[in-house]
Amino acid sequence: MNCRVLILSFFFILQACSTGSTKPPENLLSLTEAQMKIRSYQTRVFDLSDQQKTLRAVVSALMDLGFIVERVNAPLGLVTAAKFAGSGHSGFVEATVTIKPKGENQVEIRANAIFNTKPIEDPKVYQNFFSTLQKSLFSS
């Protein structure tokens, strides 16, 4: 009996200690070097001045890739699309593309994607997207 009380009290002390140390890390919202790297390969600058044409080309590229375009916000230059992937549609890919004018004759396009709630951080994935987008931008 005494042993049981001892184990229980030890457990409560442990729990009390653990609740005291659940402070969020200080660098939770700070930009790390890795994030800057990810951002750099998610972004490309194109020599284009027509924002509307660029937006339509982004939508077209996503549709070519089998994505379903869910939302388009023209003033923000934002396109959100998603598709099921894999055998038996076991995976779900979501992509967000933003189009921002850069100066008078350039646009900055940033794409980021998640696969089954996990962010995709492989640069090759974004290279493939931009190569498809390039075809769509300069063929229509």
Binding site: K83, A85, G86, G88, G91, N128, F129, T132
Partner: peptide, 22 residues
Amino acid sequence: SCNTMPKPESFFQLSPSSAKYK
């Protein structure tokens, strides 16, 4: 083998049939 997850590289690659579907 039935439930193998696809490789993320393929998500943004045009498939051979994409031109036909378009």
